[in-house]
Write a protein that binds this DNA or RNA. Structure first.
Lengths: 224, 224
DNA sequence: GCTTCAACTTGAACATGTTCAAATCAAATC
DNA sequence: GATTTGATTTGAACATGTTCAAGTTGAAGC
């Protein structure tokens, strides 16, 4: 249960080697099939040592999640600095998500469920994983703000969080996708990103003004 | 792993007593805090006996889930045979969900995550839990079909499944709701059910015709 | 060089989900 | 009533996440 940041060179190296072993094994065998003993073995430390640096197996998953996010953020950087069209930015970002995660597809199910568990410290809605979630939301804020789309401020305010939620939905679909090359997920991404951009522009219609206000204030209330 | 339906009176009674013990303990202590040994103890059977009737602890949760659904279906029956207004039917049905589940609120998190786990046999998107999901979807089909709302057939086709998904979302929100009397969830239900009904009528607008077709055909494609 | 002390490491021990071979039971058959 | 046979029951054994008290290490202060 102790949250011990390494205080010595030796400690830092131990933590790093344990983490690397865990990332490798999660990717090779998945979450459940990776035992804490196997992680300790591959890292060349004792079982107890792992618990000195990571309070639980779930906390190691959080690091896995963070690692994936960093890969993703790096992958979309060129696109986000070049492209200005919102639909293209969003589509590219979503495609990059599933391309980045593709090596972990077989094991993603168990990892996703760990993260979605409301009673887990890893749940992004509140707890240890909150800072990481905020980073991902910030990425989507950049997707929006760096585009040349003119978006009403009330919508722009809620959009990043909504897109993060949307990404979660896409990932959940992708986990179940057994199609070759994950083509179905790619199609769904193309279609939904287009729809989202279209919906944003439709939201300016006078008939929709009322519902739009209600939806947005509801969302704001939900976020607290 | 064996799926053994009881073949004798004795077997039937054993299965029933184990199930009852499990339901009680889940409600009293939650999923994780309930051990298989505790279930066997309270049921007055040995540990191994439980595994003769239920392949795993998760399968006992499925029964818990089914039990809750039956309580809910019973609770909304009067409303559904009396009320004809769609918004009122939907609102009442959703309110009944969280009222029915209220006794399990403290333990709902761990149960929900078990069900949402894509690699679990309990996942409603495909596996053992599929029949139960179909029952819940059928309930929402009745909510729609028993109303006096005139709904275009392409929408009506996808609506029950969508409402089931919506119910899942509300439950997820409810799990995190710490407000007294779960008032916030009730407010969200009132607001969202209204919005849904409004959206259904808006979908007939000529401007929305295109998006509507695209959304519906996308949903149909996702369901397979 | 010696002492001290916090950081680090270790492996045994525990709790719990699951498996399984053996024992027990009870109904059908003779 | 004895035998057979399949259903049921049992508890020991195993795997694995987690805890913890005890041991080891190494640098700072003397």
């Amino acid at each position: 249960m102790a949250i011990a940041l390494p205080k010595t060179k030796r400690g830092e190296s131990s933590r790093a080697v344990i983490l690397q072993a865990a990332l490798d094994l999660f990717q090779e065998r998945g979450y459940e099939a990776t035992t804490m003993r196997a992680i300790a073995d591959r890292a060349g430390v004792s079982l107890g040592s792992s618990y000195h640096y990571f309070p639980s197996k779930e906390h190691l998953v959080l690091e896995f999640y963070r690692h994936t996010h960093e890969l993703h953020a790096e992958a979309v950087r060129p696109l986000l600095s070049r492209e200005r069209d919102l639909a293209a930015r969003l589509r590219g970002t979503m495609r990059a998500v599933i391309i980045t995660c593709e090596p972990f597809h077989a094991v993603a199910g168990s990892i996703f469920s760990t993260v979605a568990n409301p009673s887990s410290p890893l749940n992004p809605f509140g707890g240890t994983a909150r800072p990481l979630r905020d980073e991902v939301v910030a990425l989507y804020a950049e997707v929006v703000s760096g585009s040349d789309a003119r978006i009403a401020s009330d919508i722009a305010e809620m959009l990043p969080l909504t897109l993060w939620l949307y990404q979660m939905g896409i990932l959940y679909f992708w986990i179940f996708d057994r199609s070759p090359g994950r083509l179905r997920t790619l199609e769904v991404i193309d279609e939904t990103t287009d729809l989202i951009v279209r919906l944003i522009s439709l939201a300016n219609l006078p008939v929709l003004r009322g519902s739009r206000k209600r939806v947005l204030s509801l969302m704001k209330a939900i976020v607290e």
